[in-house]
Design a protein around this nucleic acid. Structure first.
Lengths: 188, 188
DNA sequence: AAACGCACCGTACGTTTCGTATGGTGCGAG
DNA sequence: CTCGCACCATACGAAACGTACGGTGCGTTT
């Protein structure tokens, strides 16, 4: 049985939260890890089933109305998760950025310049996302249980600010400054 | 007929390159736009077929051995592409970062600390990618045809440096400095 | 206390994407 | 001339995706 990244996502979430229903997972991921690995909620119903079938999760079926399924980690599940966590990842992150695509193909566009509008919208997007992240920090930043999970927010914030700087520079025609400042900061 | 992002990718590539075979597209994307929107090469064989069926591309079938198909843009195809380019994107970029996942779930791992190795490997990844991007800049940076397409490289570089700063700070225990420096640079 | 409405929760199903694996093609070396 | 390897193309099964629908049960209204 081959485990995908989604599998480990589920195993990890159950490990952090304790026994969970798919709906619990859905809510928990959409507010945290979902920001850097998105997937449809249907996966959170089918994937635990697969994992239970291969002994990674134990399932407890509610017999009343909603017939909720509550999944918990088995020793095998925990072992698989820890093995995965212990191995560093040779993969580079993967991006999917429609705005960047549009910028790349810009020269094939109609004569009038579409870039300012594109940049403006991206600036909006990134500022909004930064606000969301900062809000999380200020609401949970000093709670002990949250601390270790907050660290990834810093990466998110670095990336958001990087993108924001780029689109802002593009909108104001100061791309050259961008490169110069980067060279000063992280000399090659 | 519904066009996906992949459709526009193909339309855009044919627009920039002129008439192209799927293999041409594959090679061209893998060295450029593939860095921020990856997809398997099989898509580059099936997608143009779809687009040709709906009149966005014209196909010219080689009758000799390899039976190459060369696709070129029709007026409808160009119109569709330009319409797409003219509309700013409401979407935020999407990330898929296995390393970030591992970091997030770290507390569920075995007692010994897996983070240093993880960080080290990511630093390697990002330095390597930066080298690739810088090489592109230095090889094509002063060619006129390449200039407009080089601009997205700057976004790539900003992102890479952001990630590199994060993992480096994580490895050296200077995450707090990271935040402080960011605040100085981009005051909230 | 019955009826209603809405937020909560779960799953079925058709479509698209993905990756792998396989097989043909033709140039250049020997 | 033929052999080998890089080039090129597609088939096919498996996974991921998104949407759309349908049930559940709590709180509110009458």
């Amino acid at each position: 049985m081959r485990l995908s990244t989604t599998s480990y996502l589920v195993l990890g979430m159950v490990a952090l939260r304790g026994p969970s229903t798919p709906y619990d997972l859905k809510r928990a991921t959409s507010r945290s890890v979902g920001y850097f690995w998105n997937f449809p909620h249907t996966q959170l119903y089918s994937e635990p089933e697969r994992l239970a079938a291969s002994g990674m999760l134990a399932v407890d079926l509610e017999d009343s109305g909603r017939r909720r399924k509550t999944y918990s980690l088995t020793p095998e599940g925990r072992a698989a998760l820890q093995e995965w966590l212990a191995a560093p990842t040779p993969e580079h992150f993967e991006m999917r950025d429609v705005a960047e695509l549009k910028l790349f193909f810009n020269e094939a566009g109609a004569p009038d310049d579409d870039v300012p509008k594109l940049a403006q919208e991206q600036i909006r997007q990134h500022e909004e996302r930064i606000a969301v992240y900062e809000d999380m920090v200020s609401r949970h930043g000093d709670e002990d249980w949250a601390r270790p999970r907050m660290i990834t927010l810093e990466l998110g914030l670095e990336m958001e600010h990087a993108a924001l700087r780029f689109w802002t520079a593009l909108a104001t025609g100061t791309i050259d400054d961008l490169r110069r400042e980067r060279d000063e900061r992280d000399p090659r």
